[in-house]
Every structure is written in C-alpha cells, then in structure tokens.
C-alpha cells in the first residue's frame, strides 16, 4: 500500500514484499509516534514551575519499572511477527526455485547489462539466442529463471518494480526467478557500487503480452535476421 502508491508492483512476489514493508512500517511507526508524543507531552507537562519542588525517583520501584517491563512485551511480539513474515517472503523469493517456463542470462559489466534471451526454441546457448544490451524483453505471466553473472567486479541486478535485488559476483552464476504480472517498461539498475560509471548503467525491462513478446522474439532472432538478409 505504501510502496505501491510510489511504484507499480509488477511481479508475483512484489505484493508480499510490499505487505511486509507495510507491516514493519506500522509496527515500528505507531509505537514511535506514541512514544514521541508521550516524550514531548511529559516534558511540557512536568516542566519546572515556581514553588513546586521536583521529586527524586530512583526508578527501581515496581510502580515505575512496570512501564519498562510492559513495553518489552509488544516489542518481543512484534519482533516475532516481523521475523516470521520476513523469513517466509525470503524463502519464497530467494530460496525456493519454482519450475521455469523460460530462462534468460543476465551479464553485468562495467558499465552495461547484456541480456541473452533463449530465442524461438526457448533454449539458452543455442544459435537462435537473442543478445541485447541494456534491454531485457520478457513475457507477462511467464515464470523466468535468470542466470546472473558479473564479468569484472560486484554488481547488483535490481528491478524495483519487481522488488528484486540480487548481487552479481564475478566467477559465480547465480540463479533466481521472477514472474512479471504487468505489461509495461520498467527500470533495471545496478545497486552495488561498481566504479565510476555505476550511476550510469541503467537498463530497461520490457514486459509484453505473450503474443507481442513472441512476435519480438521472431523478429529479432539472429536466424530470422540472416534469413531476411539473404532474401
């Protein structure tokens, strides 16, 4: 509700992350406002007054301690709620790997993104793969695996509309997943400082309906392009 008013949520798990964000904001925000209100209210209410002597309190009596003890209870309860919700979302987004309909390769380097799409045969690393720079094309309502690589230094594949962030680490191929739920063009950015051009490596993700995406794949497959060139 808070995040979605600022940025569309375009993946299956974006809603879960937004809900977690809302819960944390409320669980932390409401007590913060109450505590701030009491803090300032008491300062004004009990400020020094002529002819009124202040009381000396050691703070060890039960009558005063209970305000601290009782406040611990909601803190513990809230903590448990946040941890349980966070672990469930984390498991779903990062640890669980649902069966994929399609797989794309995402390669980060100073300072650009290379995307390898599987092409018409829907298999990566074949002759009909489509390689693009700074432009990732995917179909709506299709579950994708991404294979994330870095050529030089640490980068981070961040798609704010998906609420997805994943470090890219040189020498490793990191597999993750997403499923777009909304057609449109959204930002991809690098979220790990990677040198002087870090802020200048934006890319786009273009989400289209299945048919339009298939048309794009047909038109851009290198095999299709060679056929066109030979005609």
């Amino acid at each position: 509700m808070i995040l979605e008013s600022l940025l569309p949520s375009a993946s299956t798990y974006a809603g879960d992350i937004d809900r977690l964000f809302d819960v944390i904001t409320l669980l932390v925000g409401i007590p913060f406002l109450v505590a701030s209100y009491l803090f300032f209210a008491f300062i004004f209410r009990f400020k020094a007054k002529d002819g009124k002597k202040s009381m000396y309190i050691t703070g060890t009596e039960h009558q005063y301690m209970k305000w601290i003890h009782r406040a611990h209870v909601p803190i513990l309860v809230f903590d448990v709620i946040i941890v349980v919700m966070a672990v469930r979302v984390w498991y779903d987004v990062k640890q669980n790997l649902p069966e994929a309909n399609s797989t794309v390769r995402v390669i980060a380097q100073q300072w650009a993104w290379t995307f390898v799409h599987p092409g018409p045969d829907n298999v990566l690393d074949t002759a009909d793969d489509i390689t693009t720079i700074n432009e990732l094309h995917v179909a709506k309502d299709t579950l994708y695996h991404y294979k994330l690589e870095a050529k030089d230094v640490l980068h981070n594949f961040s798609v704010p509309a998906f609420r997805l962030k994943q470090d890219a680490i040189p020498g490793r191929i990191i597999t993750g997943w997403f499923e777009p739920t909304m057609a449109g063009t959204f930002d991809i950015q690098c979220a790990e400082i990677c040198g002087i051009g870090h802020g200048l490596m934006p890319a786009k993700i273009i989400i289209e309906g299945a048919e339009q995406h298939a048309a794009w794949v047909e038109a851009n497959s290198p095999l299709a392009l060679t056929v066109a060139a030979n005609q």
């Binding site: 380097q109 100073q110 300072w111 650009a112 720079i133 050529k151 051009g197 200048l200 490596m201």
Partner: peptide, 10 residues
C-alpha cells in the same frame, strides 16, 4: 566491446 561499454556511459 569491454572498452566501448566503459566509454558509452561516459
């Protein structure tokens, strides 16, 4: 083009 991709953002 490793070098070219570094010059592009600049």
């Amino acid at each position: 083009d490793t070098g070219g991709l570094r010059m592009y953002p600049m």
